[in-house]
Design a protein around this nucleic acid. Sequence first.
RNA 1: GGGCGCGUAGCUCAAUUGGCAGAGCAGCGGCCUUUUAAGCCGCGGGUUUAGGGUUCGAUUCCCUACGCGCUCACCA
Length: 432
Amino acid sequence: MVSQRIMGKAAFAHIEDGSGRIQIYLKRDVLGERVYDELFKKLVDLGDFIEVTGPMFATRTGEVSCEARALHFLSKTLNPLPDKWHGLKDVETRTRQRYVDLLANPEVREVFVKRARIVSAIRRYLDSNGFLEVETPVLQPIYGGAAARPFTTHHNQLDQELFLRISFELYLKRLIVGGYERVYEIGRDFRNEGISFKHNPEFTQLEFYEAYTDYNGMMRRVEEMICAVAEELNGQLKLTYDGNEIDLTPPWKRITMRDAICDATGIDYTLYSDATSLMQAIRARGLRYEPKASRGKLIDGLFGDYVEPTLIQPTFIMDYPIDISPLAKKKADDPTTVERFEYFIAGMEMGNAFTELNDPIDQRARFVELNAAMAGEDENVHPLDEDFLHALSFGMPPTGGFGTGIDRLTMLFADRQTIREVILFPHLRSLD
RNA sequence: GGGCGCGUAGCUCAAUUGGCAGAGCAGCGGCCUUUUAAGCCGCGGGUUUAGGGUUCGAUUCCCUACGCGCUCACCA
């Protein structure tokens, strides 16, 4: 029961369940003193579960209602529901006690229905395009596939240190080596990094890998998949996010990172082959930069500051600097650049893809280079995944790979501006 | 982790320069047989996040702790 209006010897109330909300009408004449006064008026509170049976009728205002001939008590609430008009607004209570949030705010329930539909539409798209859904280890002896710091845990019997995965990438590529030509996984990644409006320590990732294609093929694949989701969810390719109308109709804009940065800042980073000269160019224009950054990070910084926020309509940013992309294949005509794209919608990075690096010798060299660079920057050096390199040495076909955050996709489709609104139980500090 | 801001009744929010801590909803009692944010009359409800300090007097000013938010950093 979610509302009541008692008028002496008769009362109206609304009851609600998953199928909807309906008004009930209770009269002492009909129910008798025991049920009407002693049970309904005295004992039944808002939030209690009751069962009512009786004929349907329309009130003076035409609302379809049920005239209670019998009333049964089903279940009791001990706590009052939040304010019936204002609902529950306090962000901390809403996330710590999501059950109350869901109970009090129906639009919150809608978000997670939408989220489930997105995941199910993605599965339907990939399944019907010949992709095989697989499950790879969450507990990994060596973590890799991304730059994040991992959570660490321990297996008691084996007395072995294990890491919660930061990405699925290296395992899914092993499966491409194994002969599956189209694989995908939807699951949880864990990254021991800062929490923000678009970061939660655990988040849901989709990765898929497709043999005999490259990042150009992946771009078409991504357009097609996201549009299939939009069609299934909304029946159209336009949506509104944070007040901006966004049109998903393909083809999406494609622009190289070099051109995008050049347009936004006037700096053509290909004219500066090292961090020092690039830094001078940035300083000369009075732009922001991180003094200790490598050349790749400077480029990434320019992009993040001056380009990313402007990418409201769906956009593929192509061709990344090699030193921030150790798992992507070099461009044939430019050894400083890789065949990689990220796609952006509503000013947010939504996903990442490459033509996968399938040369085991180059891959080893790139890992070694990266670790040398990271050691120079005093960062955590990733352990070398020898088994992954061993896998590549059995031959991996040319392959395109792609990863995207389900949480951010849900933010986009549900028009939520923080990730905590699309995760049922986002991480919060414990109360002691 | 840094900076800034916030924390008042079960919920949503007030409180003047530092001067008796309030309202609506919810709850309790009463009236009310077509209401729907029902209405009317009455009542109860607070360690103002916690602890300390300044002051005759602190929700208000200061310090510390806790939590949350925004933001920066981190996130190949």
